[in-house]
Design a protein around this nucleic acid. Structure first.
Lengths: 371, 371
DNA sequence: GAACACTGATTAAACGATTAATCACGTCAT
DNA sequence: ATGACGTGATTAATCGTTTAATCAGTGTTC
């Protein structure tokens, strides 16, 4: 039950062409000194035989697998498809494969998942941490994607500024009484988003925040959020920290007979796949995952291909100046080494509209309640 | 810039304990003949030094990478998280890692993605094909996950039977006029689901099918589905082929002031993450992805670890009888070698209810239209 | 014309784990 | 006592690629 390799290897090509295997290696990689004609001949023979380099052999020799690990907090997160797609694409462009690991929302599992990836020999990790978990020291470069306010973050969307944009949009529409809907107090992302929204509000604006997760835990998964009460007391804008929760809000309001956006505006975050297809389509804030992924991958590959070989062995300089000439291929943008944030994009759709005046509101309410 | 391995290797352990590296290998793998005391000593030393086996070295020698490739039609598919999670989990239990590849909905890209995975040395592939694409011959075992009616399918949910279950549920509630909402005529999955639903209907039941994708192409992405017309003409049950489309239907109806499920029942498929959290919560049909993944992975690992080493070299027997004693670890259920289907589970929630009688319906309609 | 540089190729040694073949040694039966 | 056998370990080859070191030529230069 030995190695079940199918195709030919370098030695076979070498024999077929009549040269040494080193020459084949040099010809195919373009590294050593090989005459142009020979390069062409070797290329042709390799193609003819359907040669596929053995990643195992290469990995063993070079010490690099050209595979990155993607550690996800909870794959069932609806934002995950976007993340995975963007990361896979960026990694693929940079010549890397992506090995996934799901931490199922659990910190212990996350640690195990990371360990498994390391054992598989990944060259680096992209970690989207569970609720701002710190990652213990690992033996390979790590890029964290969380929020700018998380220590150790490498790159992320500027959730705060995205929140501010959204709030300004709602302010412009005349809204002065806000309800923020969060899921989980411990989430850095959610706190940033709500913080950003609050920061844009003036003194004449009132706001309140409710958290879904504790409500569900107390009252069961199908608990009502009691939005009707808030609407009756004058709230005209409900901003959820995710489209998923915005959807919950939207349908709860619609079932209660409240018109969106005529009576209440509803907004979300993330621009999930369903945001444009619901009625009314959801005003939300879009993350440029493609760019985030590019930056994360670029930061990682730079560190992998750069000088600092292992963990923290060398104490001295941290600067890595002379390595930007070789990767003129994929990501052109400058990549801030330390931590960078990518701005979000407001997507104005149909679920946000002018604030109803208190009069209008009272009238409509009467219409619906008193039949 | 040589290999940047961090930890110790077998030779170092061997030296530290005072034995040969072969003994270390045997001790850690439990394969050769090593005295129990020595095994313990080697184990201890390995743990002490923090030994992590080199997957590259092992892969090179054994010819197996212990990595599987997961080829997805379109990562942005909202069902993908479930798939990826289930596959990762099943693969991980079987000792395999999962390398992802996105084909971005394109057949050419899919071929390239598969090629990249092969180059990375995957031991097998799980392919969720784009619209029943046939996979060209590849040099490693492949498990296809599509529909039972697709040739070459390995395992899938029994979409047909799931559709039948759902239709029976709606029939039991008294519905006699159905509207099916599909997205794309070319999808095997969607055809199976609709076919299954139709198969359960009797002669006294009328039904019609609309397809979203052509409508969007003609009228733009925010096109209305014109559901109001169907409802006016007596449809009481609208069954979409996916929760995503069911959500579209639901919110369009709600916006039009039609009560769900009082006037119209709405159902979906897939039990996507938002299905339980919208109001009314969505009646849908759940896929047992965990089981599907287990079967797919088991089929794959069986073929990988089994006798048939490469592609189609041997013409004779396809039976592989004597290899079921060694995998008594993870998946206990018997795995049908050829093609197997996993039954779906009806999730009855709030969006489906008793059919309104024609009278009731007319009355409610009057109430809403004539105010 | 001899030292020298340059070019285009080869040699051989890794990388780390696995494993068939072998060996030393003690036990046991004949 | 001698050959057979079993046990616990070692030896050495192998997987396929990369690369530093080396080498044989061919011009070049003073």
């Amino acid at each position: 039950m030995a190695a079940s390799r199918t195709g030919p290897n370098m030695t076979q090509i070498a024999k077929a062409v009549g040269v040494s295997s080193a020459t084949v290696s040099n010809a195919l990689s373009g590294k050593g000194r090989v005459s142009p004609e020979l390069v062409e001949k070797i290329r042709a023979k390799a193609a003819e035989l359907g040669y596929v380099p053995s990643s195992a052999g290469r990995a063993l020799r070079t010490g690099r697998s050209n595979v990155l690990g993607l550690v996800l907090p909870d794959i069932s997160n609806p934002l995950f498809p976007q993340i995975a797609q963007a990361m896979e694409s960026a990694a693929s462009d940079a010549g890397y494969g992506v090995l996934i690991a799901d931490s199922r929302g659990d910190v212990t599992t996350q640690t195990q998942a990371i360990a498994r990836l390391i054992e598989r020999g990944v060259d680096g990790l992209v970690v989207i941490p569970r609720r701002g978990t710190r990652i213990g020291s690992v033996s390979c470069p790590v890029a964290m994607v969380d929020t700018p306010s998380t220590p150790g973050n490498t790159v992320s969307a500027d959730h705060w500024e995205g929140g501010a944009q959204l709030a300004r949009h709602l302010l412009d529409l005349g809204h002065r009484k806000f309800l923020f809907v969060g899921h989980d107090r411990a989430s850095n992302v959610q706190n940033d988003r709500i913080g950003g929204m609050k920061s844009a509000l003036g003194n004449d604006v009132s706001h309140e925040t409710i958290w879904i997760e504790p409500m569900l835990r107390r009252q069961g998964d199908d608990a009502s959020l009691g939005l009707l009460g808030h609407v009756t007391s004058g709230v005209t804008a409900i901003a959820a920290v995710s489209d998923l929760h915005a959807l919950r809000v939207l349908t709860e309001l619609q079932t209660a007979g409240i018109k969106v956006p005529e009576q209440v505006s509803v907004t979300g975050f993330d621009d999930l796949v369903f945001a444009p297809v619901v009625t009314p389509s959801l005003t939300t804030v879009h993350m440029d995952m493609t760019r985030i992924a590019q930056i994360a991958i670029a930061a990682l590959t730079k560190e992998i291909e750069g000088p600092r070989t292992t963990t923290v062995t060398n104490t001295g300089e941290i600067d890595t100046p002379e390595i930007d000439h070789k990767n003129g291929a994929t990501v052109q943008q400058t990549v801030k080494a330390d931590t960078s944030k990518v701005s979000m994009k407001l997507m104005v759709r149909a679920s946000s509209g002018p604030a109803a005046s208190p009069d209008t509101q009272a009238r409509m309410e009467k219409l619906y309640n008193g039949d």
